[in-house]
């Protein structure tokens, strides 16, 4: 009986999860927050560019957010 209830609960959660997936995203008129500058993926492009240059020169990894490319013989 208890197991059945647990199974029901799991099912309910799974369905809730699925319906959450199907409603991923927003309607066009619900983009007020997403349209803010602060919500842009690359909200501070110069900061990112400067950081990428420093870390490219100082660490063994590069890229991820954008191209890993070369571009300088930075030491």
């Amino acid at each position: 009986m208890r197991i059945k209830k647990l199974a029901q609960l799991v099912m309910l959660l799974a369905v809730a999860q699925l319906s959450a997936c199907s409603s991923l995203g927003v309607k066009p008129w619900e983009r007020d927050v997403l349209a803010k500058e602060e919500m842009a993926l690359n909200a501070a492009p110069l900061d990112n560019r400067l950081d990428d240059h420093i870390y490219f020169s100082k660490e063994g990894s590069s890229g991820g957010r954008s191209f890993a490319g070369g571009g300088c013989g930075c030491n």
């Binding site: 991923l24 995203g25 927050v33 997403l34 919500m39 993926l41 590069s62 890229g63 991820g64 957010r65």
Partner: peptide, 23 residues
């Protein structure tokens, strides 16, 4: 360099980005 990206709006307050890149 090759870059494959997927951007997904999760909800009213949440935006997500996935990238795979090959160099």
């Amino acid at each position: 360099d090759l870059l494959f990206g997927l951007t997904q709006v999760i909800n009213h307050d949440w935006l997500m980005q996935f990238n795979y890149s090959l160099s």
